[in-house]
């Protein structure tokens, strides 16, 4: 093909390429948008997605009555700030008090930040010495005591170390043992 003819052809094609380029961009963003909406729809049907259980407040705290259930995600921070994954506004609790993460073998690992402390079932945890919580374990920090309730299917071989005589079993705990009677987790 002669160079002149190719030139005209190529110059004509550049508009086509620009059009396709714009189309590719539009389609990609359309796809992003679609996926986003699909994901939102899916998550709306799964209120428990990303959560492993709840922590139940055992005694009245400021602005948080007893039996309040706090959702527990796979990983996060517990502290007094509203932005924390588990917000617990109570005196004696630091803004970001402890990190926790779910370990499928051991249970919910609790690690206070440096110079912060808490106890899990009576044993003191520290930054160097993280402790695991199982279903029914009690986390005590400052004035607050919290009982962990894992969702059905997530219980580990780790056995709860709390004794029945120390604290009376809570209603929430009771639910947890019988997976068939799940309460609404959104509450």
């Amino acid at each position: 093909m002669s160079a002149e003819f190719y030139q005209v052809l190529s110059l004509a094609m550049r508009y086509w390429f620009a059009l396709l380029g714009i189309l590719i961009v539009l389609r990609s963003f359309y796809w992003l948008h679609k996926d986003r909406r699909a994901r939102h729809r899916r998550l709306r049907r799964l209120p428990d997605a990303g959560l492993i259980g709840e922590m139940v407040v055992l005694s009245d705290l400021e602005g948080m009555p007893a039996q309040t259930a706090l959702a527990v995600p796979y990983e996060g921070i517990l502290g007094s700030v509203r932005g924390c994954d588990i917000p617990l506004p109570a005196p004696g609790i630091q803004a970001r008090h402890l990190d926790f993460w779910y370990d499928s073998r051991q249970g919910l690992m609790i690690r206070p930040r440096k110079n912060r402390y808490c106890t899990v079932d009576g044993e003191e945890a520290s930054f160097r010495h993280p402790l695991a919580m199982g279903h029914g374990s009690i986390l005590q920090l400052g004035p607050a005591a919290l009982r962990l309730r894992l969702f059905a299917g997530l219980e580990t071989e780790y056995h709860a170390r709390f004794q029945d005589d120390v604290l009376p079993p809570t209603e929430a705990m009771h639910y947890g043992v019988q997976p068939g009677k799940e309460p609404d987790h959104e509450s």
Binding site: Y6, L9, M13, W16, F17, L20, I24, Y30, W31
Partner: peptide, 22 residues
């Protein structure tokens, strides 16, 4: 949306390489 994107991308490359072949 994936198929629509793929079609445009394929069209783009087909025409571009064909042009270079010419």
């Amino acid at each position: 949306p994936g198929q629509r994107l793929t079609m445009v991308v394929c069209l783009f490359y087909f025409s571009a390489f064909l042009l270079l072949f010419l």
